[in-house]
Measured scan of single mutants.
Amino acid sequence: LGLPKMEVFQEYYGLPPPPGAIGPFLRLNPGDIVELTKAEAEQNWWEGRNTSTNEIGWFPCNRVKPY
Rank of each mutant, 00 (worst) to 15 (best):
N44S: 15
R49A: 08
E47G: 04
F9C: 15
W58M: 05
Y12Q: 00
G31I: 02
E55A: 12
V8C: 13
L28G: 02
P24G: 09
P4D: 15
P17W: 04
R49C: 10
L26I: 10
Q10I: 10
I56N: 06
W45M: 03
Y67D: 11
N54M: 12
G31K: 09
G14Q: 02
W46V: 11
T53A: 04
K65H: 09
L1E: 15
F59V: 03
N54P: 01
L28E: 03
G31S: 05
G57K: 04
Q43P: 06
C61V: 09
C61W: 06
Q43S: 13
G31F: 05
P66C: 13
C61Y: 10
K38G: 14
E47W: 07
N50C: 10
E11P: 08
L15A: 14
I56E: 05
K38V: 12
Q10P: 02
P17G: 06
N50M: 03
I33N: 03
E40K: 11
L28A: 03
F9Y: 05
G14R: 01
R63N: 07
Y13K: 14
W45A: 01
W58P: 03
C61F: 04
A21H: 13
C61H: 15
P18D: 03
K5N: 14
S52Y: 09
E47M: 15
R63C: 09
Y12F: 05
G14L: 01
R27L: 10
F25Q: 06
I33K: 08
N54W: 06
W58T: 02
G20F: 06
E47R: 10
P19A: 08
P18A: 05
L1P: 07
P16Y: 00
A41S: 13
L26Q: 02
T51W: 06
T37W: 08
V8Q: 00
R49Q: 10
P24I: 07
W46L: 12
F25I: 12
W46P: 00
T51R: 11
I56A: 11
D32P: 01
W58C: 03
S52M: 13
P24D: 09
G14N: 02
P16R: 00
A21L: 06
L1D: 04
R63T: 15
I56P: 02
E42A: 07
Y13N: 14
L3W: 09
P16A: 02
G23F: 05
W45I: 02
G48C: 02
P4N: 15
Y12P: 00
Y67R: 12
E7I: 14
V64F: 01
P18L: 02
R27G: 06
G14A: 01
P24M: 06
L1W: 09
N44Y: 11
D32H: 04
M6S: 05
V8P: 02
G14T: 01
V64W: 01
P60L: 03
Q43M: 11
L15N: 15
Q10E: 14
G20L: 06
E40I: 06
Y67S: 12
E11G: 09
P16E: 04
E35I: 10
V34I: 13
W45S: 01
Y12L: 03
D32K: 02
C61A: 13
G57T: 00
E11K: 10
F25G: 13
W45Y: 13
R27W: 06
P60M: 03
T51S: 10
G31A: 05
G23H: 06
P16L: 00
W58R: 03
E55T: 09
K38R: 14
W58Y: 13
I22R: 13
T51G: 07
V64Q: 01
